[in-house]
Design a protein around this nucleic acid. Structure first.
Lengths: 214, 214, 214, 214
DNA sequence: GATGAATGAGTATTCATTCAT
DNA sequence: CATGAATGAATACTCATTCAT
């Protein structure tokens, strides 16, 4: 990224880019579209951004940094592991809803990032995921969370919801945001608990086998 | 989509297109790349496919049709609602893993479809989703599934996993496929059950409130 | 180079490119200028040429190949070393005059070639020069040519004339071409002879010293 | 050219420009490259130079003026024509070696000068050449130099060496500079002498004819 | 004097699609 | 059926130069 100083140009361009990329996709949005929508000239844009790719990276970078900072703060605060994990889940969902256009852009346009930058993003997401996984493992050690499902699957199960927001979430009232975050977190936490206390479980071998035969 | 199965050309082109689109993205793959990889000429490809867009639609069309057919067959077979829903979930996960490249392509390249075709895809996915939602609602009426979370959220919670497969799933052994499908289904079914039978739930109002205050 | 087949497009484009590059320089000639002058479309040009750089390389490549072939033929023919060298000199001068526009283009636009291609050109010119140098050394061994000046300087002294043609030569009559080639060759051969048989030479130490003192 | 010697900026910019133009070519060097290398800002540069073109002209102007002054001084000193001519040749070669980067820049980037400035340069070089030609003609009148080759060819023969320096000369020891100048001058003077006193010449009509037949 | 943000015209190149053969 | 040459519109990006501060 090359954002040198803060400038009206920079914020206008980013706003226009997020909006257009989310609406039409990165590949279908020309640099001309962006600068026209932002009301600046192409030259001005290239004064602040190295490339169209730079714009894309910058968009996600903001959200990634924010979420990482929140994660670190929540963990630093401490507490019971399921309360901490719940807080982390609610936060990442809420911020992902807040920056839902950015998420839409990113997940659909990963392919357009340069190799170098894709790697940088992957690295940073892995850092976040690893800290998240540590919380899950801590909960397992403390006997709160189920151990019959690999941690990788548990993690993917949660982040799939975060990722998928841009495909279905549409806000009607501001309150929806927190509500949705809490509901999804609740579903995740429900699925995370030890199942051995649920005596009505249908996941016994017999029922599985009957359907695996299809 | 134009004629299917008419020639070796068609299958070679589709195979090449899926592979390249999944690897580099639709926008970064030229028609020349595809025909070169398929070992056919550009003219031959345009004889069977109307456009590059047509190719993209065709790729997803195959999977959508297959999954819809499976869904109809499973429902027709009948049974207890949670067994039926479980079977549906396992099936859509298994077929999505089987055609994981197609899923990768589609979710990242929706933007590149023509308006008309995007609408057609949305229509067909909605049909599938509606039948899925009917199962969930039936389970709620029968007192099996929780009712404190909107059906739309429950549905999204499940399809997020399907969607997310292409971002994390990588097969090491063939058996992994079914195992992963079952594990994810299990997580979903766990989260779907009425929480009022789980006396240790932390989703009571007090705990929620404490974190919403952050 | 990518010239695939012979085509009217290829020859028209090359003709236009040579003319415009010689007239205005490579950097001042746009691809649009070339295709307009050639009466073809940009797309057609890029069907045959990879890049503007490719065009530049192709222009010089033709002359280099021709001169190398001539050199090999003349050497293969054999004869007294001064006759052979004289024939080589006349040939390279004549062909350089024939393709004077190509030479103009090349010497002024070397900088614009990609690194890889510049190296290829240097390699080929070195091959030519080495064979030329062998003739000079053979003449020295046979006692015909002076040995008081390094061979590298003698060689540069000759090729400087070839190179410089584009800066001063302008043909008025077709016969001028051979005449100029012979005259320049004659000057070179004169300067190449052993100076010890020229008793009126002013290159004795005294005269040299007097001017070195300036 | 605009003001000279007014500031550190001017000399830093010129030094950077010569270096970069010689290394990468005028067209491949941006004004930003130059000011960055010189450690000044763009605005500062444009305060002292009208344009990039102005920079190019300025570079050559320094050398042209210097060589013209030397020429006038040598001629004013008087002496035998071959001694004067020899001194002139050695001087132009030595100064061209001293300012070899400037020569490199100029000969390859003539095309980039504005029409007006190109004409100015041509005018000044013609002035130099005319005075040089006068010396050659005086030598011919005095019976020292050959008359079988047009004066224009003789002149071009000499200046080709000056021009070509940047293509082959690379200094290893400081003494090389004068040595090379003397050697090249020597070659030129050798070729300039009347050939009728050289009884072993192969440039008789018969030998010429035999090669013209190729 | 000096800055550096902004301009705007220009550049090479790509590529889905068409069509004469 | 199949070819591949040709189209032409679009695209990202560059850069010498200007000018308000």
């Amino acid at each position: 990224m090359t954002r040198m100083k803060q400038s009206q140009v920079v914020s206008d361009v980013i706003r226009a880019a997020v909006e257009l990329f989310a609406l039409k996709g990165y590949a279908n949005t020309s640099v001309q579209d962006i600068v026209s929508a932002a009301g600046v000239t192409k030259g001005a844009m290239y004064h602040y951004f190295e490339s169209k790719d730079d714009l894309l990276f910058g968009i996600y970078d903001r959200v990634l940094s924010l979420q990482q900072a929140h994660l670190d703060a929540i963990i630093a605060e401490g507490g019971e592991v399921d309360d901490v994990l719940r807080a982390v889940c609610v936060d990442v969902l809420e911020t992902s809803i807040e920056f839902i256009a950015e998420g839409t852009v990113f997940f659909r346009s990963m392919d357009m990032l340069s190799e170098q930058r894709r790697k940088e993003v992957v690295r940073r997401r892995r850092t976040y995921n690893d800290e998240f996984a540590d919380l899950v493992r801590r909960g397992q050690r403390e006997g709160l969370f189920r151990e019959d499902i690999p941690v990788a699957v548990l993690i993917a199960h949660f982040f799939s919801d975060v990722h998928y927001l841009s495909y279905w979430y549409s806000e009607e009232k501001p309150a929806d945001r927190t509500l949705a975050a809490v509901q999804i977190t609740d579903l995740f936490m429900s699925s995370l608990r030890r199942s051995d206390v649920q005596h009505f479980s249908s996941t016994d071998d017999a029922s599985l086998a009957s359907h695996q035969a299809r």
